[in-house]
Design a protein around this nucleic acid. Structure first.
Lengths: 183, 183
DNA sequence: CTACTCATGTAAATAGTTACATGATTTG
DNA sequence: CAAATCATGTAACTATTTACATGAGTAG
């Protein structure tokens, strides 16, 4: 797909950054959208530089340590804007280990299945709590001309997704319990 | 993660199958849980055979065409049951190209952003309709001792996820439209 | 006899994770 | 001065996708 490319270009469009800062950005602002480790980011930056979509200049931290501060070029901006304004195909259903496990769980006892569901629910609830905490910065909701408005929409999607996942797990547990014990 | 391995073992636990039939199963019953192409399945079957988790025998279709019908071994069953009964870590947030696009869409006009959201909504609604259609077999809801009960839970999760995705997109569109045009 | 489905593989490329490797700077 | 963080890379491996390659069986 080449999505990593646009994730990096998009971040550099907002602000000049080093590879290290980009890595941090993936782990914070892009947590809801895309992930990448530094071992993927540094080689990608090299390629983007060769392709002329980004440039860098060397800055010095302290007295010796060099860092490369990357800037998006005009060509880079143009490719990015093209990508942002084009509608894309819906991603295929996300792979989920737990759904697979549940799908095969007819070999387990109802008690074991409920225990798996309960474990998953606890993990989801924790994630939801973390997400809600990270969204406190959105009070009040940013106005729609503000750049933070888009951040808010993405954050809202994450919260809604996790709430829905919890609701599904609760419903599964309820069905496992209530749904007449024996014919 | 090695999830593909358990997906295959789980399917073979339910029924002996060829690589071709496994491929079809990924595209139908496992659509909501995991995906794999035949080019990944055939090599994996080779490895599983070498590891002694599955076996096959040759069957003949028509007069010449050979097919390999795979069976899960006792070792395979034991590994599968271990995996099914162990709780696993929640998968990291799913990567979604559209969320990334929306995140960066502050460079677009409100009209352009709404148009992207609308496009995504249409695709989601289509997927939801397809899913609902594929779930007609679950009327009435299978009893919880039935093997189909787990299928139903997974299907329900898919429907709820897509409904929620639609609700989020509708809310985004609403916010883009209503949320005071100018300060 | 043509088109579609059944059937099984390999090759090449891209994407992504984990581990290896190194060294400077800052904070307590 | 020790530990955490800043900073940049490569190597090896695993996972996944797309394309290449072939041929039999079936239904209209």
């Amino acid at each position: 797909m080449g999505t990593l490319k646009y994730a990096i270009l998009g971040l550099l469009y907002q602000k000049n950054m080093t590879g290290y800062e980009l890595t941090k950005a993936f782990a914070s602002v892009l947590l809801e959208s895309w992930r990448a480790k530094h071992s993927q980011i540094y080689p990608e930056l090299k390629q983007l530089t060769q392709a002329g979509l980004v440039e860098y200049e060397i800055a010095i931290s302290g007295t010796v340590l060099e860092k490369k501060v990357y800037t998006i070029t005009e060509t880079g901006k143009s490719e990015l804007l093209d990508w942002i304004s084009t509608p894309h195909m819906l991603a295929p259903m996300p792979k989920e280990e737990f759904r697979l496990q549940l799908f095969f769980s007819s070999v387990l006892s109802t008690q074991q299945r409920i225990s798996l569901l309960q474990n998953q629910l606890t993990q989801r609830q924790q994630r939801l709590a973390d997400l809600r905490l990270s969204g406190q910065k959105f009070t009040p909701i940013p106005p729609k001309n503000d750049a933070a408005f888009c951040d808010y929409l993405v954050w809202l999607g994450g919260v809604m997704r996790e709430e829905n996942a919890c609701a599904w797990l609760e419903e599964c547990i309820r069905l496992c319990q209530n749904h007449k014990p024996e014919q």
